[in-house]
Amino acid sequence: MSDGLSDLKNKWMDAREAQSLQMRSEESQKLVALSAKKLKLSIVEHVKTIVVLVLTCVGITLCFIYITPFKEVLSQIGMWLMQGALVLRIAVELYSIVLSSKIKFTDAAVKSNNMALRFYQFRKKVHGLFTLLVVLVYSLGFYLLTPEFLKYLDGTQVLLIDLSYLVGAVIFTFFIRLAIKKEMMVLDDLKALNDQMGEG
């Protein structure tokens, strides 16, 4: 095999020589510019969920203070449950960013793969029971506002608000399921790669 391997090595080096001649090498300055652009995109990608959650949290807080200042205890509990659920979700997203920042391209492949595995295992937990719990707590908080809504709005309007919330929750659940499916596929691949790297 050693002769076979040296033949193969020669062929490999010849192939490099051949492709080097016809290769279009990009200018490094262009790559630097692309890198800066990509870095910005990756930051946007990381923080967009947090921005949406923070804006929602701020939005409903302002709404509770200035537009619909709820008076009843039940509504106050509802308000806190909604805000609490959002704050918890923001905290989890922030931790997610910390975990993903630990996946480094400069680490050895096994370590990098293990960090990615840890990240996706965490995402699996987040998208599973935890998200369900957050949605349930948020929804409970929302429906606790209904009795006080009924004092100021007529029954049909409140029914429409409650039903539209339900539709929103169903759509949200659908997208969460899609995200879970994608991330579970990645998790399986990472496990397969881990096995490949570990097996003799």
Binding site: F105, T106, S112, N113, K181, M185, D189, L193
Partner: peptide
Amino acid sequence: TWIYRITVNTCLKFIRDAKKNQHLPL
């Protein structure tokens, strides 16, 4: 060695991302 590490990790991530976008098993 450093660039090899980056290349190996980028290759493995590239496949992961590509199939994630196409919804295909490896």
